[in-house]
Simulated assay, not measured.
Amino acid sequence: MTHDARHVLLRAALDAAERGWHVFPLRPHTKRPALHGESACPRTGPCATGHRKWEQRATTDPDLIRATWARAPYNVGIATGPSGLVVVDLDMPKGKGSSDAPSGATTFAALCERTGQPVPTTRRTRTASGGEHLYFTAPAGA
């Protein structure tokens, strides 16, 4: 991975944190957390009082983000709960069933039409499989 690609990933993590979204590193080219699991927990640093899972270790601290992304070209994970987000995952058909299975976007659009609601305008990201994630602010208290 080039230095430019690493910079793009770091910038994406910092941009998300600037929005108040808690980020954590994902293993390069995957969507698996790049943080230690419970069995490998050193019980130091953030885990000094006991193992903390990836969502608990997600951060908006730009210094910590810079230090973490300097080590590897991590993908960017968003901890939706701490970030106050609800994300709708619009998957593509997996090819295991009917070849005419609708995409998640098609199904979501049909649901919106049936309920008399427009398809919401919101932040969207493309997924590796060609689907989309739609980002919404969670209702207060949720």
Results as ranks from 00 to 15, higher is better:
residue 30 T to A: 04
residue 59 T to I: 03
residue 12 A to C: 08
residue 25 P to E: 10
residue 8 V to G: 03
residue 19 R to C: 12
residue 11 R to P: 00
residue 15 D to Y: 08
residue 61 D to P: 05
residue 41 C to V: 03
residue 23 V to L: 13
residue 7 H to S: 12
residue 34 A to L: 07
residue 41 C to I: 06
residue 42 P to A: 14
residue 33 P to A: 04
residue 43 R to S: 07
residue 12 A to W: 01
residue 31 K to T: 01
residue 40 A to M: 06
residue 8 V to L: 14
residue 29 H to E: 14
residue 29 H to W: 11
residue 31 K to C: 01
residue 47 C to H: 08
residue 50 G to V: 15
residue 11 R to V: 02
residue 14 L to G: 04
residue 35 L to R: 05
residue 47 C to I: 06
residue 6 R to F: 00
residue 58 A to C: 08
residue 10 L to Q: 08
residue 16 A to K: 15
residue 6 R to V: 00
residue 56 Q to M: 11
residue 48 A to R: 15
residue 20 G to F: 13
residue 12 A to D: 03
residue 7 H to F: 01
residue 51 H to E: 10
residue 46 P to M: 01
residue 12 A to E: 03
residue 18 E to K: 15
residue 56 Q to Y: 02
residue 11 R to M: 09
residue 47 C to E: 06
residue 37 G to T: 13
residue 41 C to D: 07
residue 44 T to S: 13
residue 26 L to W: 01
residue 34 A to Q: 05
residue 15 D to G: 13
residue 33 P to N: 03
residue 61 D to A: 13
residue 55 E to N: 13
residue 34 A to P: 02
residue 8 V to A: 15
residue 40 A to D: 12
residue 40 A to R: 11
residue 32 R to Q: 05
residue 61 D to E: 11
residue 27 R to C: 06
residue 8 V to H: 12
residue 34 A to M: 10
